[in-house]
Simulated assay, not measured.
Amino acid sequence: MSLDDLNADVKDAYSALGDELLVDLDRETRNELAMLSAAFDTDDESELVRRAVHALYRSTVDTGDLDFHLRQGYDVTYDEYLSGMTYEEMTGADQYPQRDDERRYQM
């Protein structure tokens, strides 16, 4: 997989999500959401869910988990995704032919 594949998958997932998302809550999640609602004094649980997604995303980026999964699935990092090019493309390493080390010192 590649950077182009990742871009296509992100676009597909984005369009598939739509504006609303129905989520089934288990007992533990319901309890935690109720605690957060009470602590933040809000009746809008959807705002808490949005914050949770942002917190998970930030944590995943900060710890390197996102890079780990992107490297496994797409062979790119989050920085490469943001820049729109791979490190090889950034440094020009993909522009030169591979050296033939066996013939390198032959006269």
Rank of each mutant, 00 (worst) to 15 (best):
D43R: 13
D9A: 15
E45V: 14
D9N: 15
D79G: 05
L6R: 00
E88C: 00
D12Y: 13
S46Q: 09
Y78F: 10
E88Q: 08
L25E: 07
S15H: 07
D79R: 11
M85G: 07
M85H: 08
Q98R: 11
G18F: 00
G73A: 11
L25R: 09
M1T: 09
D44M: 05
T86L: 02
Q98S: 12
T63P: 03
F40A: 08
D12H: 15
E102I: 10
S37Q: 15
L70E: 02
T60N: 14
Q106Y: 08
R103S: 02
Y81R: 06
D62W: 02
G92D: 00
G18H: 00
V49W: 01
L17H: 04
M1F: 12
G64Y: 05
Q95C: 10
S59E: 11
D62C: 03
D19F: 03
E89R: 06
P97K: 06
Q72S: 12
Y74M: 09
Q98Y: 09
D9E: 14
G64R: 07
L21I: 11
E47K: 09
L3R: 01
D41S: 08
A8K: 15
V23W: 04
F40L: 10
G18D: 00
R99E: 07
D75S: 13
L56C: 01
Q106D: 09
D65A: 12
V23K: 05
N31M: 12
D67S: 10
N7F: 13
V61D: 03
D9I: 10
D19A: 01
R71Y: 02
E28L: 13
L70R: 01
D67T: 07
L66G: 04
R103N: 03
D26V: 11
M107G: 08
Q72T: 08
Q72A: 14
R104H: 06
A52H: 05
H69W: 05
D4V: 04
E20L: 00
T77H: 02
A38K: 14
Y74I: 12
V49H: 01
Y87A: 00
G64K: 01
E102M: 04
L6Y: 09
